[in-house]
C-alpha cells in the first residue's frame, strides 16, 4: 500500500521579513520529489522543518511515520545541506569514526569506505583540501553509509561540473531503485530535476504554488507564441503570464493540448520547469 515518507500539514514559519506557509506537502515513499523556487522562496526553511532542525511555528511535520525530532526517526534519514557539515579541518576517516559513534550499529563502515573508494576520496585528506564536488561526494557518502530510508538534500548539485553532477544523479537513481527509498531535494538546476524527479513542488514567496507529477506538469504547461488577438481568444485562467514584445506575445499557458485545439495555427511548445518559474515570478512583478 502506498504511503508517505514525509508530510507537512499547515506548516508555518514566521521570520521578521519572511513567512513560510501555511504549507501542505506530501512526499510519497519510493519517489523523488524536486523542490524548486527562487532564492528566498522558503526551500531551505521547509527542509529544516522537515528534518527537525527547527520547529514550525504552526502546523505539524511528519517524517517516516514519526516526528522529525525523534532520534529513532533521524537514524533512518540521510541529510545533505549545502553549507552545514563537519569542520573542514577533519578528514573522511575522522568523519567515519565519529558517525560510527553517533549511529552505532546502523553505521556501515564498509559501505562508507566503499563510497569513498568509488568517489576517489582519500580518507586521510582534510576536507579543506577537497574540491566542491569532492565535498559533496563526501557529504553523500556520509548520508548514505547508515542505509537511510530517505534522503533530504539541499542543493546537492549546486556549483558542480556536469560530469560530477551526472555521477551524483546516477547515485540518486541507484538509491531510489529500492521502492522504500525516497528523496526530497531542492535545486536551482531544474534540468537535473527534469532528469530524475517524479514530481515537482514549486515554492513561491513561501507558498506552495503546486506539487504535481513531473511528466503531467511538462505536458500541462506550454509556451504559447502568438499575436495579441489570438491571446484574447483563450478562456480565462488558461494564460498564466504573458511577455509582450514587438514580435508578439509569449505566454505561459496551462492546458497545452487544449490551447493547441483552440488556436491551431499557433506554436505552443512544452514548458520546462525553468520557464514555469520564470513566468510565475514575472507575473508577480506586474
Amino acid at each position: 500500500m502506498p504511503y508517505n515518507a514525509a508530510e507537512l500539514h499547515g506548516v508555518q514559519k514566521v521570520y521578521k521579513d519572511f513567512k513560510l506557509g501555511p504549507l501542505d506537502l506530501t512526499v510519497p515513499a519510493g519517489t523523488i520529489v524536486g523542490l524548486v523556487g527562487e532564492n528566498g522562496a522558503g526551500k531551505t526553511t521547509t527542509l529544516k522543518i522537515l528534518t527537525g532542525v527547527n520547529p514550525p511555528d504552526g502546523g505539524r511535520a511528519e517524517l517516516l511515520g514519526g516526528l522529525p525530532k525523534d532520534p529513532e526517526v533521524r537514524a533512518r534519514l540521510g541529510v545533505v545541506f549545502e553549507e552545514a557539515y563537519f569542520y573542514e579541518g577533519m578528514n573522511a576517516a575522522h568523519i567515519g569514526r565519529s558517525m560510527a559513534g553517533i549511529f552505532g550499529a546502523r553505521w556501515d563502515a564498509g559501505a562508507f569506505s566503499g563510497y569513498l573508494k568509488r568517489f576517489g576520496l582519500e580518507p586521510d585528506k582534510k576536507i579543506k583540501e577537497y574540491s566542491r564536488g569532492m565535498r559533496m561526494k563526501l557529504s553523500l557518502a556520509t548520508a548514505l553509509a547508515h542505509a537511510p530510508e530517505m534522503l533530504v538534500l539541499d542543493e546537492p548539485t549546486a556549483g558542480l561540473d556536469p560530469v560530477v553532477r551526472g555521477e551524483i544523479l546516477d547515485l540518486f537513481l541507484e538509491f531510489i531503485q529500492d521502492e522504500h527509498h525516497t528523496i526530497l531535494m531542492s535545486s536551482h538546476i531544474t534540468s537535473d530535476l527534469e532528469q530524475i524527479a517524479d514530481s515537482i513542488a514549486y515554492l513561491h514567496h513561501g507558498q506552495l504554488l503546486f506539487h504535481e507529477d513531473k511528466d503531467a506538469l511538462m505536458q500541462e504547461y506550454g509556451l504559447l507564441r502568438c499575436s495579441e488577438a489570438d491571446l484574447h481568444r483563450l478562456p480565462d485562467g488558461m494564460a498564466v503570464f504573458t511577455r509582450r514584445s514587438t514580435f508578439g506575445c509569449e505566454t505561459l499557458v496551462k492546458g497545452r493540448e487544449a490551447v493547441l485545439r483552440l488556436l491551431p495555427g499557433t506554436v505552443c511548445d512544452p514548458a520546462g520547469i525553468d520557464d514555469i518559474m520564470r513566468f510565475y515570478s514575472g507575473r508577480d512583478g506586474q
Partner: peptide
C-alpha cells in the same frame, strides 16, 4: 568556534542525537 564556522549544529540536528 569550529562548529559555528561549519554550521555543524544545523547538521547535528538531523542526526540521531538529542
Amino acid at each position: 568556534v569550529f562548529d559555528e564556522q561549519s554550521h555543524w549544529d544545523t547538521y547535528a540536528r538531523t542526526l540521531p542525537v538529542s
